[in-house]
Design a protein around this nucleic acid. Structure first.
Length: 972
DNA sequence: GGTGCATGAATGCGT
DNA sequence: TTCATGCACC
């Protein structure tokens, strides 16, 4: 018992031990919300002797559920914890519907329509009606109606105008389709469960306590569910924070807090005030920001840590510059804190997942490992989704949309026309698409329409796969994992591996690795969710109420439900005990409830945050508040003065309100040794020794965040490069040797011609330049040798080739200036742009004839590789995408002009490929047994720039680049 | 009628 | 990047 209350402050302790039957805990960021809630659960079990299976704990997201479960486990032990009825609202609703659904006419084998299904259904419905609505917006509108409990009939009563009449038709058609296919969408899960609770209150007669996490995010239906779960016991604990309500777009109702108080007038409210997460300066800034919302009841955050360094609000010239600055700040802070901060301590939080590209490429280029918390779900990756869809058809052939998605994958000569004809005929006969197909194939149907012979054959092979699968499920002689065996059968029947090879010639190995990961997961699932566990998971039996049994027969169904309700597969970093160090990239939404020592929030401009589509600016502000309060010791907001579309941006209105600027610093902090100690204290870590700190600092080229001008201009070196690049008379691409000499002279010209270049830059130039040139030359010779060795082995898979272009020049210029300043510590090898943040490569920079030099810097990827590989050990299970042996190339991102390290098997056109050295040749097509280290990008299941392999460069992009000259963005 | 390629347009957060 | 469309070819 003491263990449960240990380390709680007074308010937390009061909340945990309160005997109030209805309790609201208002918990601002970092106040120990989860700690309090988990402790209360443990307390209810330990002190009040409630049975865990009679306690319902609802969270909002899968991640929160997992986190909560883990923490409760730590408090009361795994055996007890896993008996709790703990999960997301949706998963708990699903559980009730599975076991009691028959009482409200829901058959056992209903499927869950995910958003791609509902979108497809809506698209068809809209087409049928002849409306012009976007499926996406219909989807949103229907969902929001459902969340408010407005069904078709209720909507019909209010639908007066033509537009709503049309929408009503769509709504009705959509609901009819779901019904006909025996499908429930996400909202239906909640609605039906609510109906079940209302009509059969005995279902929850066992419940002794209901606890709700993130209550401010509940919608009306979820509120009702909470009320109904607790209809017998009347014991409710909620935790929440109105300031962190960021799901209004999902129909969350902040007013549920007030509603609750009205409904239970003796509700006890406990305010947690103390913040244990962030340093004072961060809290002050966040507080100032949230107070811009005048309708909000005043509430103070109490810092428990020291004031720390002020958050940073940084201006950069472009999105790419921002990304490069961000990477350089990561490296700089790591160094100036003497290694106190590891990669795991950094997070980049984004308003939208689409903003990640520039960041990913900059991280990839610098060899910094990262993981994405957001992004495409593993189960949504094309190759995985196809297999999942096959399993769904096998499990539940009534889902026409899914059949349509896979019927021609791999291609079976069944085109849209055939499908449309089948659909029409099926509708005419009033049977499902699957039944129709079956009848056609098995000759039971003398159809009025004629199918082409190849299409008929194709249908037969499709039916064969599905029927074989279904037989596999029903025969269930599970001497081995039946789910896995089923999946293996499907894969074999589809000849899936060769299909992938054919369809995705460039990256089939990565895709196949994902398939293997899926197989591993199905195996895991069955192992974990074995019969015994399933019995334990089941709801407790209730006298006089039929309960459907859940058995291993349902493994497939449970697995698929799990897939539908699982956001993304959280990668277990410590599979082999050692945790992988990597930066986290996440959306601000997905970051809720999490914390990191250092947080970056890039793209703080109007249109991004507040988002241009957002309806509620207060909610956007709260979102930024949530993002800011994730930070423990260092917080960076930044704003490119040009967005990714190269349009001028306005800094977020939230950050330009009068008075807020004094809460921010204009550039990254200079961290003194004393601040390092304070910082360590806030993080509850040991401070590094002063000696270590100074050693690390010395490795830096720039100890201060002063490379990028504070006003968002391009740095001087960039300007120099600009001048150079506009000079049309300069020599073009040549051989490596020629370019070397070219380089010497041109950069000399450039430096001389650049009046604002510092004097040190010039004075240190000659000696450093000659030394550097010598090193470069040696390196170039090595590379040319290696290139000729390997050239013969490399197959040109992509004749269009891609032009790579690395920013050599300005980093070289900086190198000179730096080297001049610190000539006593000249690096032993050519300086890598990795070490210092490369200057930006704005989207529209014209190509410069210095790619050879650039390549030289990058075609020594061994530096980069060793960095990457040391921190990213090869782990196929956890990082399937990275399992492909590849050659490393430096790529020019077609759109952004940014440099990438690519895993690629497509070489350059020889004449443009000067010193490009496939240093890391191990790919299937050019394997020579090389023992070069492999690069292992940390990206896991998500599409990242690192995986953009073999994409032909779009010619139009090259055009665009030359159209918008660098000059267009000249200095103010 | 079906397939494959080239081109053009759009891209919000999550169960 | 992913999706939708238009076009040439089997």
């Amino acid at each position: 018992m003491d263990a449960i209350l240990d380390g709680l402050n007074d308010a937390q302790r009061e909340a945990v031990t309160s005997s109030a039957s209805v309790l609201q805990v208002l918990a601002p960021p970092g106040s120990g919300k989860t700690k309090t809630l988990t402790a209360r659960v443990a307390y209810l079990v330990g002190h009040h002797q409630l049975k865990p299976w009679n306690i319902i704990v609802c969270t909002f997201t899968v991640k929160a559920a997992r986190e909560m479960k883990d923490r409760i486990k730590a408090l009361i032990g795994e055996q007890v914890a896993k008996k709790l009825e703990l999960g997301t609202f949706h998963s708990i609703a699903l559980r009730y519907l599975k076991q009691y659904g028959q009482h409200i006419g829901i058959s056992k084998d209903f499927g869950i329509a995910d958003s791609s299904d509902t979108k497809a259904i809506l698209k068809k419905s809209i087409a049928k009606i002849g409306a012009t609505m976007q499926p996406g917006s219909a989807q949103g509108r229907i969902s929001s109606l459902k969340c408010k409990g407005i069904d078709c009939d209720a909507f019909a009563r209010s639908a007066k105008n033509v537009e709503s009449q049309e929408f009503l038709q769509i709504y009705r058609s959509y609901e009819a389709t779901l019904l006909a296919s025996n499908l429930l969408d996400y909202d239906d899960l909640l609605l039906r469960c609510r109906f079940l609770m209302q009509s059969h209150p005995q279902c929850v007669s066992n419940v002794q306590a209901v606890l709700i996490d993130e209550f401010q995010d509940t919608n009306c239906v979820q509120y009702d569910l909470m009320r109904l779960f607790a209809q017998h016991c009347n014991a409710i604990t909620i935790v929440g924070d109105p300031d962190q309500s960021i799901y209004g777009w999902r129909s969350a109702e902040i007013k549920n807090l007030a509603t609750m108080k009205q409904q239970w007038p003796d509700t006890l409210t406990i305010n947690l005030k103390d913040n244990y997460r962030s340093s004072g300066a961060i809290l002050h800034a966040a507080q100032k920001l949230i107070e811009q919302d005048e309708g909000r009841p005043p509430k103070k955050l109490q810092a428990t840590h020291s004031i720390g360094s002020r958050p940073v609000l940084r201006k950069l010239p472009s999105a790419n510059a921002e990304a490069e600055w961000l990477v350089s700040e990561i490296k700089r802070t790591q160094a100036v804190t003497g290694g106190l901060l590891k990669e795991n301590d950094f997070a980049v939080l984004l308003r939208s997942a689409t903003l990640s590209r520039a960041i990913e490429s900059a991280l990839g280029k610098a060899g910094v490992p990262y993981r994405m918390l957001c992004g495409t779900r593993f189960y949504d990756r094309a190759e995985v989704k196809v297999l999942i869809d096959y399993l769904r058809v096998i499990n539940h052939a009534g889902n026409d949309e899914v059949i349509e998605r896979v019927i021609n994958v791999p291609t079976r000569k069944i085109g849209d026309k055939t499908v449309a004809a089948l659909n029409q005929e099926a509708q005419l006969k009033g049977v499902s698409l699957w039944r129709m197909i079956l009848d056609v194939v098995q000759g039971r149907c003398r159809s009025e329409f004629k199918l082409a012979e190849p299409a008929l054959k194709g249908l037969a092979s499709f039916v064969d796969v599905v029927l074989t699968g279904q037989r596999k499920v029903t025969s269930l002689e599970s001497e081995k994992s039946s789910l896995l065996a089923l999946l293996e059968t499907v894969i074999k029947k589809l000849n899936f591996q060769s299909y992938l090879k054919e369809k995705y010639a460039e990256d089939h190995e990565i895709r196949w690795a994902n398939v293997e990961e899926l197989m591993a997961q199905t195996g895991d699932f069955e192992e974990k969710e074995n019969l015994q566990d399933m019995a334990e998971d089941a709801l407790p039996a209730i006298d006089g109420l039929d309960q459907r049994e859940i058995s291993s027969d349902d493994a497939l169904q449970l697995f698929l439900a799990n897939v539908a309700l699982t956001a993304s597969l959280e990668k277990k970093a410590d599979d082999d005990g050692e945790s992988v160090q990597q930066i986290t990239i996440s959306t601000m939404h997905a970051a809720k409830g999490l914390e990191w020592p250092v947080v970056f929030i890039p793209a703080c401009y109007d249109g991004s945050i507040p988002h241009s589509r957002a309806e509620d600016n207060d909610e956007e502000r709260r979102l930024l508040y949530v993002g800011m309060t994730r930070a423990q010791v260092l917080l960076y907001l930044s704003c490119p003065i040009k967005n990714t579309q190269r349009e001028e941006t306005c800094m977020s209105t939230f950050l330009t309100q009068p008075g807020i600027e004094c809460f921010f610093e204009e550039h990254g902090p200079m961290v003194s040794n004393a601040s390092v100690n304070a910082l360590a204290k806030t993080l509850r870590r040991d401070a590094p020794a002063p000696k270590t700190i100074s050693e690390k600092r010395r490795e830096l080229d720039q100890e201060e965040d002063n490379y990028w001008p504070l006003n968002g201009d391009m740095p001087a070196a960039e300007e120099a490069r600009w001048d150079y690049s506009r000079d049309k008379s300069l020599p073009g691409f040549g051989t490596a040797n020629r370019s070397l000499s070219t380089f010497g002279s041109t950069s000399m010209q450039q430096t001389d011609g650049f009046s604002t270049a510092s004097a040190t830059m010039k004075s240190g130039f000659v000696s450093v330049a000659s030394k550097y040139e010598e090193l470069m030359e040696q390196s170039a010779i090595r590379k040319i040798e290696r290139r000729t060795e390997t050239a013969a082995k490399v197959v040109d898979e992509n004749p269009k080739g891609r032009k790579r272009q690395i920013d050599g020049q300005s980093s070289i210029a900086t190198f000179f200036s730096n080297a001049a300043a610190k000539s006593e510590r000249l690096p032993a090898s050519p300086p890598s742009t990795l070490k210092r943040p490369g200057p930006p490569l704005p989207e529209d920079r014209p190509k410069r004839p210095l790619n050879e030099i650039s390549n030289m810097q990058f075609s020594r990827p061994d530096q980069l590789i060793s960095k990457s590989s040391s921190s990213m050990p090869y782990k196929p299970r956890t990082a399937p995408l990275s399992s492909r042996p590849s050659q490393v190339q430096v790529e020019d991102d077609a759109g952004s002009g940014n440099s990438y390290v690519f895993l690629s098997s497509s070489p350059e056109k020889p004449e443009r490929n000067e010193p490009s050295v496939p240093a890391n040749v191990q790919s299937a097509d050019s394997s020579n047994g090389s023992e070069q280290p492999k690069i292992r990008p940390a990206a896991t299941f998500h599409t990242t720039s690192m995986q953009r392999i073999g994409q032909p460069q779009r010619k139009t992009l090259g055009m665009r680049r030359s159209l918008h000259g660098w000059s267009a963005r000249g200095r103010p």
